[in-house]
Simulated assay, not measured.
Amino acid sequence: MSASFDITRVNDNEYRVRTEAEGQSVESLFRMNPDLQGRLGGPEADEVAVVEATARFLSRHQSVIDFPPMIDLEDILATYDDAPEQIQRLLADDSPGA
């Protein structure tokens, strides 16, 4: 079962991502460089959708309990070679008509 994420915009390009895991509430601040929205999801991609897809991608690679307090999306892309393609696939799977 994949995690369900509650995402709230905090500032420009910063989002609070909350979820429950192992009976605990987990919260991280996701930061996104403005050009990532277009690079990952295309010009019409919603920032929240990109953040959610990234959180889902990361949860497939590590427990959400182990998410750090702050996550920069650029770091995810630098750490995981397949991140851009996988995040784009998650976004496409969630798009209307997919």
Rank of each mutant, 00 (worst) to 15 (best):
V51H: 07
Q86D: 10
M32K: 04
L91N: 05
E74Q: 15
L29R: 09
R89N: 08
D66T: 06
A78F: 05
M32H: 09
P84K: 11
S63Y: 02
R60E: 15
P43G: 13
L91T: 13
Q62T: 00
T79K: 14
F67K: 06
S59K: 06
L90K: 01
P34Q: 06
F30I: 06
Q62H: 11
S63H: 03
G42C: 10
D72M: 14
G41H: 09
L73R: 04
Y80M: 08
S63P: 03
F67E: 00
Q86Y: 00
I76G: 08
G38P: 02
E74V: 06
D46A: 11
D94P: 02
D46K: 00
A45M: 07
N33S: 13
F57P: 08
F30W: 12
I76Q: 08
T54D: 03
Q37Y: 09
L90E: 08
Q88R: 15
A53H: 08
Y80F: 04
I65D: 14
F67R: 06
R39T: 05
D93H: 07
V48M: 13
P34H: 09
D72A: 12
I65T: 14
L58M: 04
A45T: 12
A45W: 02
F57H: 13
E74A: 06
A45G: 10
I76E: 09
V51C: 02
S59Y: 08
L90S: 00
H61Y: 10
L40N: 07
D82W: 02
R89D: 05
I65L: 15
E85V: 03
L90T: 05
I65W: 08
D94F: 10
L91D: 06
R31D: 07
S63F: 02
P68K: 04
A53T: 04
N33C: 01
P34V: 09
A49E: 13
E47M: 14
N33M: 11
F30P: 12
R39G: 05
L90I: 02
A49I: 01
P43Q: 14
I87W: 10
A78V: 04
F67T: 01
A49C: 03
P69S: 08
S63T: 04
D46L: 00
F67H: 02
D72R: 15
A78T: 07
V50P: 06
M70A: 14
D93K: 08
E52R: 10
E85C: 10
